[in-house]
């Protein structure tokens, strides 16, 4: 990651630079910053990193505390008598695995549908001029302003009347659709950066427009598709509100955010289990996120927030 970014970074001021001291060479200075300034920059960044990760480390700490020492006033990162008791407990004595499985089934299916629907629609928005195009784009932007809680009221009542409460039906449809507007915006911005000549060349060679889209545009937009998939996946995986409304009290089909809230609610008895479950959920999500963050950065800046 550092190599990709530093290659883009400018190195201004190289012309009038003084010879580097040993210390400033160590800190890889090219701007002629003084060693003291570099030290301050590093200290600031170290402080920011600590603030960013300390609360997460605390979750790890609590997850490693044995049951009888859950409520401790110690601030040590690794507790003295660390044990995996909470992990075994949450895996065997609670519905955690079931909740994660449910989340996985729902999230996987819905994010794939979401990407398919968004990629085709965004292609139409990028390449075709049809009546209502501008209005459609503004509508998509406007949907981002709707507070989630505002949609919950009618969705809940409509779902009650359609007998969709306590099943996956409503949830799967809702997840597939709610992420579409944002995905279209990202993808449209990305398609716009690809010259139309590419498809025209393919069509001259006898490909249909859909064929050109499938063979040329889709492979070129893989990073953007990955971002959109990731966004859809994260949005559904981390969603609490829709799941709470649609799944109601049917604990056997709950997704993990509902389950975790239940564990956290029993503060004194299950705090350790909540922490262990959080760590288990976090590891794959954070890994996926950090791995894909280079796509994320390039995709977001190339498409979504292009000026």
């Amino acid at each position: 990651m550092s190599t990709t970014s530093s290659s883009q970074t400018s190195t201004p001021g190289a012309a009038g630079k003084k010879p580097d001291s040993v210390l400033s060479r160590f800190f890889y200075a090219q701007r002629g910053d003084s060693p003291f300034k570099l030290l301050m920059i590093h200290l600031t960044l170290i402080l920011a990193s600590i603030i960013a990760i300390y609360p997460v480390l605390r979750v790890l700490t609590i997850s490693l505390r044995p049951g009888d020492r859950l409520l401790s006033t110690s601030l040590a990162i690794i507790p003295e008598d660390a044990s995996f008791e909470n992990y075994t407990k949450v895996l065997t004595d609670s519905d955690f695995l079931l909740w994660v499985w449910n989340s996985f089934a729902v999230t996987g299916a819905t994010s794939i549908i979401g990407v398919i629907l968004a990629s085709t629609s965004a292609y139409a928005f990028s390449r075709s001029r049809f009546p209502g195009r501008t209005a459609g784009l503004i509508f998509l932007l406007a949907t981002q302003m709707i507070p989630a809680a505002m949609l919950m009221v009618p969705l809940f009542i409509l779902a009650v009347q359609a007998n969709l409460i306590g099943t996956y039906r409503g949830l799967v449809i809702a997840y597939s659709v709610t992420s579409i507007p944002f995905s279209i915006w990202i993808l449209k911005g990305y398609y716009d950066t690809i010259p139309y000549d590419l498809e025209q060349a393919a069509m001259l060679d006898g490909a249909t427009q859909m064929g050109a889209f499938y063979r040329i545009i889709l492979p070129l937009t893989t990073p953007a598709l990955a971002i959109v998939f990731l966004f859809n996946f994260m949005a559904a995986w981390n969603d609490y509100l829709l799941a709470r409304i649609f799944l109601s009290n049917a604990t056997e089909i709950w997704t993990w955010p509902l389950g975790l809230q239940l564990l956290q609610g029993q503060f004194t008895t299950a705090w350790g289990q909540f922490a262990a479950a959080s760590i288990l959920v976090m590891i794959p999500v954070v890994t996926l996120f950090l791995y894909s963050s280079k796509y994320l950065i390039s995709g977001l800046t190339a498409g979504g927030v292009k000026g």
């Binding site: 960013a52 994260m234 995986w237 981390n238 609490y240 975790l260 999500v285 954070v286 950090l290």
Partner: peptide
């Protein structure tokens, strides 16, 4: 950058 991004990567509910 990886460390500072971490809060964004963590599920908001957690």
């Amino acid at each position: 950058r990886t460390l500072i991004i971490l809060p964004w990567a963590i599920p908001q509910v957690i």
